[in-house]
Amino acid sequence: MLSQLQKKLLNDFQQDFPLSPAPYADIAKTLGVSEQEVLSALQELKQLDFISRIGPVFPPNSLGNSMLVAMSVPEEQLQTVAEIINQFQEVNHNYHRENRFNLWFVLIGNNQNHLHAVISEIESETGFPAMRLPMIANYFINLGFELDWND
């Protein structure tokens, strides 16, 4: 079970992490606990895999380029095709979704030409055509993820 302190840490520090020499001590002061309590709570959250890290989020496409790709693959071949795709280091994530286009993955790389080359390679290795969906505009302002503890 998560402690009240851990819930607060998860919810309230997704942005504006203190840029001060001892940020965890500053957080502790805000919450009225000790620095050691904050450090232990966060270390435990990390160990239990509730947080991936405390760090920066980069805006999409300002550094590196990304491309969403969709494929339509017969269900019985999905696992094999997904494994081929996952071997490419440019592939950041890869999901099976409920749709006629049932495999959705995102590539990240240095530039669009490189990404197109990787996608062509994926097409020839898997034998399935890839629908390429580059980003035209981003409307999302990332303020972190709102957590609801009530249900």
Partner: peptide, 12 residues
């Protein structure tokens, strides 16, 4: 704007 936010990144 090179970094959009800095903080705890949760695994939802």
């Amino acid at each position: 704007g090179l970094i959009k936010r800095l903080g705890v990144i949760v695994k939802h």
